[in-house]
Design a protein around this nucleic acid. Structure first.
Lengths: 345, 345
DNA sequence: CTGTTAGCGCCTTCAG
DNA sequence: CTGAAGGCGCTAACAG
C-alpha cells in the first residue's frame, strides 16, 4: 500500500540503502543516480515514515514546546503570540512542533521529560520559571538540547551551561519608574503577582522600578505594593473597586501586566474617573489590546519577536551541531508612551 | 543507557513479549506477572519508545490539528482558544498534538497529508473551509480519521461521509437581524469579508441577517453591504473614517467579526460619536475583548467550548473504534446583549 | 560510489 | 498463559 524505499529501489534498479542515501543527500552517491532516484521517489509520492526514521537515527524532525498551563486563556495571549512565531520559524526548518504543558507546578506528569524519553522530539523550547534543575539535568542526559525562552528559572540564570533567551525585567521596571517619575509622580503604587519559588521576573521589575524612581528622588512605599493572585483583566477590574485609599495616597500605578492594567482602568472609568487626568496607569508587556481601548495604554514593550525567533534559531543551530555564539541572551525592553499616563504636580 | 523492555524482561525473568503484554494490559498474562512486571518497569523509569511502537502498531498517540495560516495573530485569537481547549481534551486522553498550517490556500505543502503519510499522527482535527475533497479522500485512503471543526468546506456539508462540527451561521445572522430590527432599526449596514471559493459561513450570516430583518419588514440594501479584505481591528478602524455617507443613511451596522466591530467603534469615537446613542454596532464571535472596551459589545456568541470539545471527543471515539452517534453537528449560536446597540426611532 | 548485512525497540504472529 | 521468531521502514556499518 504505502510506498517505501524498497519500492523505489526496485523501480530504480538499485538497493534500498542507495535510495536512502539519495533521499538524504548523502555525498556518497553519484549526482546522476541521486537525481534519477529522487525523480522516481517524487513520481511515486514517496513520503518517509517518520517512525522508522526516528527509530534508527533518533531524529524526529519535531520539537517540543513546553508552556505553563493556563486555565484562563486570557493569561496565555502573550504566550500564544510567541508560540505562533516559534511555529513559523520551525516550519521554515521543516520541523513540526508538539506543545505540552509544564507540569512542574502542579506536580503532574513531567511532559518535557516524557516527550524526550518517548523519542517524540529532537529538542525542547521551554517557557517555565518553575522547572527544576533535576529535570533539566535529566534532559541533558538524554542528549536532547533544550532552551528556555521568555520564562527562565532563577537557578538557570546562574548556570553557564543552561541556554536561555529572555528580556531584562529589571530594565523594564527601571524604564517605567524613570518615566513616571519624570512626569512628576512622587507617590506611586505597584501591582504585581503572588510569586512562586524560583520566579524572579516580577521582583526584578519591582527592583528596577524602584531604581528608576530613585533617579528622581522618589520611591514606592511598601504598603503601596499590591499583590494579586493572577494578573488578569478581571482581577484588575475588581481591584479598582477596593482601592479608594490608594487612589488618594498615590497619583499613579505600575501594573506588571497589561491585562490587569486594562481591567483596572475600566474599573476606574466605571466609577467616573477620567484616565489619565485623575490617575495614571502604566502596564507591562505591550499586548495588542493596549491600543484598542481608551485611553491607549502606556506600557513596556517586551521584544517578543526577538525572543521567540532567537530561541527557535538557537535550537535549530544546536540541532545542526553548530556551536552557539551566545548561549544566554538578555534582550532589552522599550518604553511605549501612549495615553494612559500624564504629568503630575 | 535507555531502558527497554528487554532490560525489564531480564530483571523480571520473563521474555520481552511478555513484558510488552503486561505493559499493554493484554488479557493474555496472569494478573500476578502483570503486576510484578509493571512494578519493575515503574522502578526502572521505563518509558516506551514511541517510534518503535509507532512503527509496528501504527499508533503514535499524537493527533494533528490543521489551522489556517494567520500572519496576523489578531485573527487567530478565536482559533487559539479552540486550540487550547482541544489540547486540554487531548491531554486527558494521553494524546499529544502537532499543530500545522493549512496549505490549501497558498498552494503550499499539504501538511495534513504529510503528517499522515509520515506516520506522525493517528488522526486529524481540521479547521479549514478551503481544503479540497481530494485531500480528504487521500486522507481516508490512509485510514486516518479526520474531523472538521469550526471551519467546514461547503462541499463537506453535503457529503454524509464527512465528519464535522461547526455552528449555524445562518441562525447567528438571523439572531442579529431579528434583534436589531426589534430595536426599531430599519436601515442597517452589514460588513463582511471578501470570501474565497468554498467558504460560505459569511454568506450564511448575511442571508440569516436578511431573514431576521424581514420578520420586522426590514432589509439591508445591497449598497449597504460592505466588504473588507480582512475583518481585523485595523481594517474596522480605517473603515470608520470612510463611511460618512453610510452613517447618515443607516442607524446601525452588523459586523461579521468582533475585532472589526471594535476597531470601527474606536474609529467612530475618535470622531466624537457616542456609541450606541449615535450609531449601533453589533459584532459576531463574542471574543473576550468584547467586554473590555466601552461600550461593551453586543454580539453573537459562537459555542466555542462545545465545538472544540465535541470535535476532540468525536475523534477520540473514532480512534477507539467506536461508532459515532452523530457525525455531523451544527450547534446553535446565542445572542449576547450588551451595550453597543440601542433602540432607534 | 554501491550493495550487503544488521539492527533500532516494539508488537504480533506462531508454537508450546 | 508464556517463549521464540519475524518484521515494521529506515539508516549505519561494513564490504566490495
Amino acid at each position: 500500500m504505502k510506498v517505501t524505499i524498497k519500492d523505489i529501489a526496485k523501480r530504480a534498479g538499485v538497493s534500498h540503502p542507495t535510495v536512502s542515501r539519495c533521499l538524504n543527500n548523502s555525498p556518497l552517491v553519484s549526482e546522476e543516480t541521486r537525481k534519477r532516484v529522487r525523480q522516481i521517489a517524487a513520481e511515486m509520492h514517496y513520503v518517509p515514515n517518520q517512525n522508522a526514521r526516528g527509530l534508527c537515527s533518533n531524529r524526529t524532525d519535531t520539537i517540543g514546546v513546553i508552556v505553563p498551563f493556563c486555565q484562563v486563556s486570557e493569561t496565555s495571549l502573550f504566550l500564544d503570540e510567541l508560540l505562533q512565531q516559534i511555529r513559523v520559524m520551525l516550519g521554515k526548518n521543516q520541523m513540526d512542533c508538539i506543545v505540552a504543558y509544564d507540569g512542574s507546578r502542579q506536580e503532574q506528569e513531567n511532559h518535557a521529560l516524557r516527550l524526550v524519553r518517548q523519542g517524540k522530539v529532537d529538542g525542547l523550547l521551554i517557557a517555565s520559571s518553575t522547572m527544576s534543575r533535576e529535570t533539566v539535568t535529566a534532559l541533558e542526559e538524554e542528549g536532547v538540547p533544550s532552551i528556555f525562552y521568555h520564562l527562565v528559572p532563577a537557578w538557570a540564570e546562574e548556570e553557564t551551561s543552561t541556554l536561555w533567551v529572555h528580556h531584562d525585567n529589571y530594565r523594564g521596571g527601571f524604564l517605567a519608574g524613570e518615566y513616571l517619575a519624570s512626569l512628576g509622580h512622587r507617590r506611586l503604587a505597584c501591582v504585581t503577582v503572588a510569586h512562586y519559588a524560583g520566579e524572579k521576573e516580577f521582583t526584578d521589575r519591582l527592583a528596577g522600578f524602584q531604581a528608576g524612581l530613585q533617579i528622581h528622588g522618589s520611591s514606592v512605599a511598601k504598603s503601596h505594593v499590591l499583590t494579586l493572585k493572577e494578573l488578569t483583566w478581571e482581577a484588575g477590574k475588581q481591584l479598582a473597586g477596593k482601592v479608594a485609599g490608594l487612589l488618594k495616597e498615590t497619583s499613579g500605578v505600575f501594573f506588571h501586566a497589561d491585562q490587569a492594567a486594562l481591567g483596572f482602568i475600566k474599573g476606574l472609568q466605571e466609577q467616573g474617573l477620567v484616565i489619565p487626568r485623575d490617575y495614571s496607569v502604566m502596564g507591562y508587556d505591550d499586548i495588542r489590546e493596549g491600543f484598542m481601548t481608551s485611553p491607549e495604554l502606556t506600557t513596556i514593550h517586551q521584544p517578543r519577536e526577538a525572543i521567540s525567533t532567537l530561541a527557535a534559531s538557537m535550537l535549530m543551530e544546536r540541532l545542526k551541531g553548530g556551536k552557539l555564539q551566545a548561549s544566554q541572551q538578555t534582550l532589552n525592553p522599550t518604553l511605549v508612551v501612549r495615553k494612559s499616563c500624564c504629568t503630575h504636580g
